[in-house]
Design a protein around this nucleic acid. Sequence first.
DNA 1: CAAATCAATTGATATATGTCAACCGGTCGG
DNA 2: CCGACCGGTTGACATATATCAATTGATTTG
Lengths: 232, 232
Amino acid sequence: MPDSEYREIRKLDLFAHMADDNFTSLMRGAYVQNFPAQIELITEGEPSDFLHIVVSGSVDLFSTWNGRETSMATVRPISTFILAATIKDAPYLMSARTLEKSRIALIPSQDVRAIFGADSNFARAIVTELAQCYRSIIKAQKDLKLRTSLERLANYLLRQQRHAGGGAAFELDFEKRRLASVLGMTPENLSRAFKGLQPYGVSVTGTRISIDNQADLERFAKPNPLIDDFST
Amino acid sequence: MPDSEYREIRKLDLFAHMADDNFTSLMRGAYVQNFPAQIELITEGEPSDFLHIVVSGSVDLFSTWNGRETSMATVRPISTFILAATIKDAPYLMSARTLEKSRIALIPSQDVRAIFGADSNFARAIVTELAQCYRSIIKAQKDLKLRTSLERLANYLLRQQRHAGGGAAFELDFEKRRLASVLGMTPENLSRAFKGLQPYGVSVTGTRISIDNQADLERFAKPNPLIDDFST
DNA sequence: CAAATCAATTGATATATGTCAACCGGTCGG
DNA sequence: CCGACCGGTTGACATATATCAATTGATTTG
């Protein structure tokens, strides 16, 4: 693993405060690999042998049932995924596939569990990370149960806008078909939902979104920090 | 706090393996209180001052947005709730109300955070508990995104049947209006959904459910451990 | 006991969302 | 350059789900 990557990973909240020895020991068992786009990295139901870290590229977490499929989340650099399965030594609940050419670090789960017991700073970081993940999905659940698809899209756009710096125009950061799946709707419906937001000053050209009337859109979307603010 | 309760709480996974001193110290700052039914214990958005433990009775976790409300989960004895908010020292994402006369233990959040740093067994237990909570809600999210309301009801009945011992007849453990909210539908729709399951051998009398054709119902519901098995 | 509630149900209807088929407009490879 | 392909869009339609109003049945309360 190049030194620059090593240092990047070290800087992650999860690893930043652990003892040098322990981090080195974790990394010794780890390996890094490049994957092309659309490769299924893990499959739900399999045992969780590795904690994964997206070093570059991006990864889609999705689930299937009875022939249907839904996107649960997108993981971008640099962050980990399937921490909970690793900790519990339980089967993955979601599958993961690369969205683009990606570089992934793999740390054997048993090493993570071992060092967890030996390094209290690492343990604390894991707890914080897990609590964060838990709260994120509670928010997603509220979004899904309390809002219509049009409201979900409106709030998604406002979040994305903020994430992109707050300007009136910004880019969607992924394919519309995946956005539809993340928002819990069909691609056709997403198309109509974009039209449904035109009266509130939203215009779309390809992946470029422009919010022409911020106040109107916010009045409609009614964003709420307890659903839409990912930092808390 | 009566000695019997003290010992019950001590037996919780979260506290079972921590040092005596630390447990005693946690309990010293705690207090226990009886609440009547329908009392709002916490309100979403408020700071998380206490970790709550349901000693007896039951508690509904719910959320609201824009005049709508949805049930997220039901907490039954003996278990804790809002662990994640306590750990992160962040605002509650859900409100909680008693469903019936209930006895609740309250442990100051700052004590939990302090002892977390001092007791690695406690830290480990918290991680396990959080990972469990996380995985539970991932399953709920999959249930909601991948299944129709009829399928959710069918699988709920199968889970409840198993929970009740596996016999063909069993009782719903809460009001139908709350069940509807938990399953993400309206009470009217739940009523119709029960009728919709009659062809698969489900009969309902009040809160009593009878599954007359187990194989038929399972063929329709297609239960999946990665969604319906709460133990993993 | 009778009146008043309230959860549950039912029917009629409206709205939201999904499905299917067709089409459009790029991109890519021969 | 052309044609195949693919993501996105559109329209017509089907289905799922919510809403509203009315009724039932059980429970509570004066």
